[in-house]
Amino acid sequence: MTSRFVSSAILTAVIIFLIGPFFIIVAASLSAGDTLAFPPRGISLKWVLKVFQIESFQSSFLMSMGLAIFGTLTALAIGTPVSYALARYKLPFGETIRTAVSAPIIVPGIIVGLALLRYLVIPFGFNLTLALFLAHTALVLPYAVRVVSASMNNLRSDIEEAAVLLGCTRFGAFVRTVLPNIRGGILAAFILGFVTSFNQVPVSLFLSGPGVRTLPVDMLAYLETTYDPSVAALSALLAFMSIGIVFLAERFLGFSRYV
């Protein structure tokens, strides 16, 4: 049937457009040559190996990892209570608070980074890494609140009341009845936050200095001077890492339910 053929053609074209470039990167990174080119001249793992040897990549990788993990954990630590409060109570200034914690999504990251640099780091000598950490936590906070809120809204409040009537304290009721049921949502929020933070560039642009750099920013800087396939290799590795995490999350969690 022609319409099925047309349909397949369109979809194939779109998929190639969207994902094709990624495969090109993977192929380019396996090149045996010295410059970035496709098709690659020969196959070799040398660029992939080189990535692990570049010192600045090592330290910026650790920085990005640390920011992603601790930033997301912090965002969840303050985001879960606020989601709970928004879902269960009639919070005074509720809408204002909801807007405030969701606002970072609306403001372009680069502005947040710049503002923090100018008003926190420079005037007060605020530690740059700490400022980065705050910026990444702020970045992830809206995602944490949104995903945990979605989980909370699917849970009735009467199971908490039932637990209290059976003898639990308020906090005990939360821990025993709410947490086990939003566990999936929290995990999904963590993964979403982690990936968002790790891949984020603009927020971290201004908040870099000697020894303080996130990996994507480092890659960008590297690109300005060197044109070899190592960045391609690194991009490919990171992409596999991100995809791997999300794939596992979907497999064991049904991740897509929460987002």
Partner: peptide
């Protein structure tokens, strides 16, 4: 509320979805 000797059967039953029937009753 958690110190009164009062029981309440909710209209929606409010069973704990993450626990078995036995554990619900034992809660």
């Amino acid at each position: 509320a958690n110190k009164r000797a009062v029981g309440l059967v909710f209209q929606s039953y409010a069973l704990f979805p993450h626990l078995t029937v036995f554990e619900n009753v034992a809660f």
